[in-house]
Write a protein that binds this DNA or RNA. Sequence first.
DNA 1: CGTAGACCCTGCGCGC
DNA 2: TGCGCGCAGGGTCTAC
Length: 287
Amino acid sequence: MAQYNLRMPELPEIEVLKRSLEPQLVGRRFGTVRVRDPRLREPVDARRLRRHCRDREILGLRRRSKYLLVDLEGGYTLVVHLGMSGRLTLAPAETPAEAHEHLSFGVIERDRRYRRRKLRFRDPRRFGLVLSLQTRSLDGDRHFAHLGVEPLGERFSGRLLARAAEGRRVAVKSFLMDARQVVGVGNIYACEALFRSGIHPFRAAGRISRKRWDRLGDAIVDVLGDAIRQGGTTLNDFADGDGNVGYFQVALDVYGREAEPCTLCSRPIRREILANRSTFYCPGCQR
DNA sequence: CGTAGACCCTGCGCGC
DNA sequence: TGCGCGCAGGGTCTAC
């Protein structure tokens, strides 16, 4: 069967990236901002980016949905989305740019004796996004205004999803992947969470019982949490310039396993297209 | 408003 | 060995 290149940056990858970059960046300053190719999902505004980032101290890192946020001195926020193929790495300043390295930010150490590094953004498919905000608040920005609840936040629950799904005829998998409901549940983890909770991905969102919504909510938290924990245990040093670091995958029960036996009942896993996305499920275990 | 589908992009695996 | 095709998918936009 087809081998899938399971290297999509989903929410757990961004969370692990955030945690690993945090101790490397906080307390340093950005130096030179280099824009080699501004053609991302939206054109990069290099002058604005420089104005907001250059010489500013890095105060902290946050994550909202799959966006990585870098809080800067003066109230500015650097926003990075990795899209499908984006990579953010911290590498020595003298390392030459790889293909598709569209941006880099010089990182100035507190102690000037330390070797200078660059935060490098690579993205072959250019579905990613890099921009900066003049404020710490995301509320007024169009990229964030419509976003739903964080699946790993305190407000999230299956009950919340159940209420939002009342009367909805859309397939539950499409509902899960709709960022207006809950953010950060991509194709892979939507498939896995539905398998773990025994729910058929094509079932109408409004036709799922409260009890099963509770199970699904728990499954989402579990599958994302498992991935983050696994990522945390396999972390290496981002400073070594290895672009692969921080990307990982939990053991997958259904995704990419078409025609292979179900891990529970041994029936062959099915693959069907839903909303232009490959959808993997077990016809025996998921109803 | 809800829903379905197109589109952006490049790399890679596969079939011929 | 080489070439062309199909697929991967997050987010946004449009059409109905």
